Simulated scan of single mutants.
Amino acid sequence: MSSDELVVAVEPSADGVVLISVRGSLDGWSDGDRLVDALTKAAEDRGRRTVVDLSGLTFADSTALHALLHGRRSHAAAGVPLVLAGPMNVKVLRLFEVTGTQEAFQFASSVEQARTC
């Protein structure tokens, strides 16, 4: 497995927080549907909160943004908070800046902070 290969791992916890960890590169060459599917299932399960750990994401393009916006919509419809956690790579932060989507998401500087904010 290369360091750019996309890995999406889902870890539900006893306190109702679902942690979705995203590692590698999430772009048009990777399977962005894995993140969409994980976010959709987390919203459907109606846990207390979903935290998406983006600290291991090395690159993201519109594929990543599409998946996260889809997740935001499904979570809003289910009434489940969705928090994006870092620290994030500057390339990933830039995606939110250039698209003007920073206000669409709740961000936390770490997974620990995201679990309780």
Rank of each mutant, 00 (worst) to 15 (best):
A108R: 09
D31M: 02
H66F: 13
G16I: 13
G28M: 06
K41E: 14
D53A: 09
G100M: 07
T99N: 13
F107K: 01
D45T: 13
P81N: 05
A38R: 13
F105N: 08
S55I: 00
S21Q: 12
D53K: 07
G86A: 00
L26N: 05
A78N: 04
G86K: 00
A85W: 11
V52Y: 14
A76V: 03
D37E: 12
H75V: 11
G71S: 04
S13E: 11
V52T: 13
V83W: 10
Q102E: 04
V83Y: 06
H70K: 15
A14T: 10
F107G: 01
E44Q: 15
F105G: 05
R48S: 11
A77D: 14
L65N: 08
R23W: 00
L19R: 08
A9M: 08
F107W: 03
L69F: 12
H66M: 05
R72Y: 05
T50C: 13
A43F: 09
L84M: 13
G16Q: 14
A108W: 04
R34C: 06
T99W: 09
D15P: 07
R34V: 02
R34K: 15
E103Y: 00
R72P: 00
V18R: 15
S55Y: 00
L69C: 08
D31Y: 03
G28L: 07
N89L: 00
P87M: 01
G56W: 02
K41P: 07
T63I: 05
R23V: 01
D15C: 07
V18M: 12
H70D: 10
L84K: 11
A76D: 10
L68W: 12
D61H: 06
D45K: 03
S74I: 10
D53P: 08
S21W: 07
S74A: 12
S30Q: 14
T40I: 03
A60M: 14
R23T: 01
V17S: 11
E103I: 00
P81C: 02
V22K: 02
Q102D: 03
G16K: 15
V98S: 09
V92M: 07
A108N: 03
P12I: 09
S74K: 13
D53I: 05
V10Q: 14
G24S: 08
A38M: 10
A14D: 15
L82F: 10
L95W: 10
V36W: 04
R34W: 00
L95I: 07
G86F: 01
A60I: 00
G24C: 06
I20L: 08
A42D: 05
L65W: 15
G24W: 05
T101S: 13
V83S: 07
T50K: 13
D53H: 07
S74W: 06
A60R: 00
L19K: 09
S25F: 03
A9C: 05
D45L: 04
T40L: 02
V18T: 15
L69R: 08
A60H: 01
T40E: 04
T63Q: 06
V51R: 14
L82T: 08
F105E: 06
A42V: 07
V18Q: 10
L57C: 03
K41I: 05
M88N: 01
